[in-house]
């Protein structure tokens, strides 16, 4: 009994039943299983422990683990829903769900707001935006004089900070992105529609016998 099952089974802490995850997200069961193939690949790229570390996350984004990036760090922190310093499969699926083309617009707006609210104050504040702008310029090796950066910030806050209190709240953000919908482009990943085609090997590893549509 069980003598053929000698291959050690990798444990995936926080891995929920694909059927439950599918019922609570925009993904089908097959798509959740395909995401698991992606998750396995990322979570084993440095240490094969069934969890995605910050280093593995950055490696997946930049294909270079030495690259530190304020934005990738921020996305990692938002994906790390349980604040454990690592992303488990449940975090991964539920976070990517916001990026699904069919996800609710309001969820995308709220996630993008939290993304730019670097210090979790409940507001996007001017010093935070300046910090991100400087990081972007550094990353893209673009040079802008400080007065030009201040001009960009002036214009941005004039447009977005409706009550002119120096910070953008969620109501102001909602209005600003509705007038500038291109800002939400980063919140939709068309790849998520084709995830089963990108990771067809999920079929061989599926634990679900029959999928009822």
């Amino acid at each position: 009994m069980g003598c053929f099952n000698s291959k050690p089974t990798r444990q995936y802490p926080g891995k929920e039943d694909p059927v439950i995850l599918a019922s609570q997200t925009a993904f089908t069961v097959s798509e959740v299983e395909a995401l698991f193939e992606l998750f396995k690949s990322i979570s084993s790229s440095v240490v094969d422990d069934g969890l995605i570390s910050k280093e593995e996350f950055q490696l997946a984004i930049f294909k270079n683990k030495k690259k530190e990036n304020i934005f990738a760090n921020r996305i990692f922190d938002l994906f790390d829903v349980k604040r454990k310093g690592v992303i488990d499969f449940d975090d991964f699926v539920r976070s990517l769900n916001v990026f699904h083309p069919n996800a609710a617009l309001e969820d995308k707006i709220e996630f993008s707001f939290r993304l730019y609210d670097l210090h979790n104050t409940g507001f996007i504040e001017r010093p935070e935006v300046k910090q991100m702008l400087i990081a972007l310029l550094f990353e893209s090796e673009m040079k802008l004089a400080d007065d030009v950066i201040e001009t960009i910030l002036d214009k941005t806050f004039l447009d977005a900070d409706l009550n002119q209190d120096g910070k953008i709240d969620i109501v102001e953000w909602r209005k600003f992105v509705s007038e500038n919908p291109s800002l939400l482009k980063i919140m939709t990943l068309p790849y998520l529609r084709d995830i089963t085609t990108s990771f067809p090997s999920f079929v061989f590893n599926s634990n679900v016998d029959e999928i009822v549509a």
Binding site: A60, I61, F62, F71, Y116, S140, V148, I152, I186, P190
Partner: peptide, 26 residues
């Protein structure tokens, strides 16, 4: 594109660190 005509968030959203599509590239 002259960056000064863009709003700060448009510029920031061009960071590679915010481009999650790279997660799907093998």
């Amino acid at each position: 594109v002259a960056p000064v005509t863009m709003n700060a968030f448009e510029l920031i959203s061009k960071s590679q660190g915010l481009n999650l599509s790279s997660l799907f590239e093998k």
